[in-house]
Design a protein around this nucleic acid. Sequence first.
DNA 1: GTCGGCTCAACTTG
DNA 2: CCAAGTTGAGCCGA
Length: 736
Amino acid sequence: MERGLGSDSVPPPGSFDKSKVLDVRPLRCLAPVFPSPQAFPAFYPPQVPPFVYAPAFGPYPPGFTAFYPFYAPPEYQRPLDQHPQTPSGATNQAGPFVPPYPVQTPPAPMPSYRTPPPTMPPVFSGSANGDTTSFRKSSKIHQVGVELQEESETKGDSIRSVTEDGCSDNLKQPAQRLSHCNVHNTDAEATSSGERQNGKSSNKRVKSIQEVRLSSAATVDSESVGCIVMIFDALRRRICQIEDAKDPVSGVTRRADLKGGTIMMNNGLRTTLRKRVGAVPGVEIGDIFFFRMEMCLVGLHAPSMAGIDYTSLRFNEVEEPVAVSIVSSGAYEDDMDDGDVLIYSGQGGNVNRKDKQVVDQKLERGNLALEKSLRRGNEVRVIRGMKDVGNPTGKVYVYDGLYKIYESWTEKGKSGYNVFKYKLVREPGQVAGFTIWKSIQVWKEGITSRHGLILPDLTSGAENLPVSLVNDVDSEKGPAYFSYSPGLKYAKPINSHEHSFGCKCKGVCSPGNRNCSCIKKNGGDLPYIANRVLVSWKPVIHECGPSCPCQPHCSNRASQSGLKVRLEVFKTKDRGWGLRSWDPIRAGSFICEYAGEVLENIKAEEDNDEVEDNDYTFDATCTYQEPADFTYIPELLGEEKDVDMNKEYKTPLPVMINAKNVGNVARFMNHSCSPNVFWLPVLHEHQNGSYLHIAFYAIRHIRPLTELVYDYGMSGVPHRRKKCLCGYSNCRGYFG
DNA sequence: GTCGGCTCAACTTG
DNA sequence: CCAAGTTGAGCCGA
């Protein structure tokens, strides 16, 4: 056990070997067979139907009748004066513990229209109080996914490819790689004839009842949405990388998010163009976004800056704006919210003054739309914005589901000017969204509030952040005994056939430095951008090593600075122990490395079944592949690249790492055929050779409390394979 | 009525 | 703290 523990390959400057004993009962870990429910394991839990549209229950002001698509028979309309309290029966109340998603139990029935079979009349499947029988079938009630036609779809130069059944058409060239995604195509022909009855185009942004289109199939699903977000972020990372290299010190703002967003839009890489009232197909409650542009691309919230998204509707010859979504960023001075109730401030009034009211707000634009939505009773999507823990300068946005507006008023803000206020209440019966974040915040403030907590920090301080050990499913008190070590233990560097030399950079390796040998080895680009985010996939990463004079905070040492997200080892329902994060994780983020003891005599170990079968051996001698959609599409930037997604790679140095006795959090990561994490070999440069490490990165944005899983790959040794029960359509059936 | 062009607001970002 | 920068709404005139 002591073998190889003598010297750490990379003495992380300023750190010391704090590896200490984890004192928990020695219980055998389960074999890692990990069924996963669907293609996007926990990023998109399956509980919420992709199309949900709940009707308005009024109130309707005099002179107005219920209007489509907010129609509900009068007997089901809520009386005007009946303002509900915060729904007490909601499943997402804040408390000491909120079940992490994916939530296993289906939510209470929502007042929703569910997609009926094509030839069947639509069925109203639920009601606000969960009574599934209280609504009768009505030919006037249409199915879910009702889409409100937008002006751009009738404009000649606009993107349109949605056919009558809601399907997207062919993909434009750069998007062809995304064969599994539904995106919009700028080159597509005009919409189907049904959209232009009598040769009339719709009025600008004003939707008549006739123009409301039915969508019979949920063709934009969570996979498409996830795909678009991944493509966007990969593009954004690449633009960051390019801009970093151009002029890393100039104060020029770069806004790679906007540049990437523009390219996405110009190439039709978005899931929808339409504004919708209610849920957006493919976007699930709890989904996270790191840029406003991401929400724009998936149709969740169109404005790139404004907090209120709205659209015009026409009925009974009256045109009215209604709000469809809001972003609550807490930026307005008077905002405050509590659980399922949100007090939202109107927009405007802060002309040229950030966060300060300087004039009265006016009842126009978004404010007017919110006012109308109050009268109409339509649902408004709410997105909660907050600081991103992993990136203090950035923000993270969480889609918190559907709310309704119950009150509005004006009041004098702290600056003495009138501000519109809107009281929004979360619709009951939706899966937990923002409340999970609140729970996590409570846990961070007092770890003992975490239900099922066994150990506050199983690393005993060996990591810069604690890693808690939690079991809230059964009585098992912990995984088998092991010693916690944050890093890989090498006795000496492994010699490769080629000599390796570190760089000579002082301070940090500058992205634009063409003379940095470490950057050269990476193909001319620093592989990371800010916050230790990997830009694109590579067969191997060359990081600065012990012989490089650059500082520990050099960007090219991303995998050497320990944990940056708050992790938790937890007992899964049926897959032994697993790993997940309390914090959201951006795509490309370095998560952790695979620590353990390096097995020096690979040949001997390969014949040693005991070593390989202990479930804790990382076999870096097997082949690995590029994960789909992680790397940007080069054509979008006019770059050429030979993309051979199926090519199999081997690590430059054959290494096996045994983490049975000594290891870190990575030993708890389970297998999935549809992973959210991938690994890469990382070489730390040294004069006499290299140290090879295995580093894990996020494939896509990962919501809090989502299990982190990677593809164990195939060892090529049939008798050592284990059956995989993940259940994905692309499941290989076994792994290991 | 439709379209194109222009201006402007906006709970962004770094 | 501030300015670069984008989308989409709104308006106007052809």
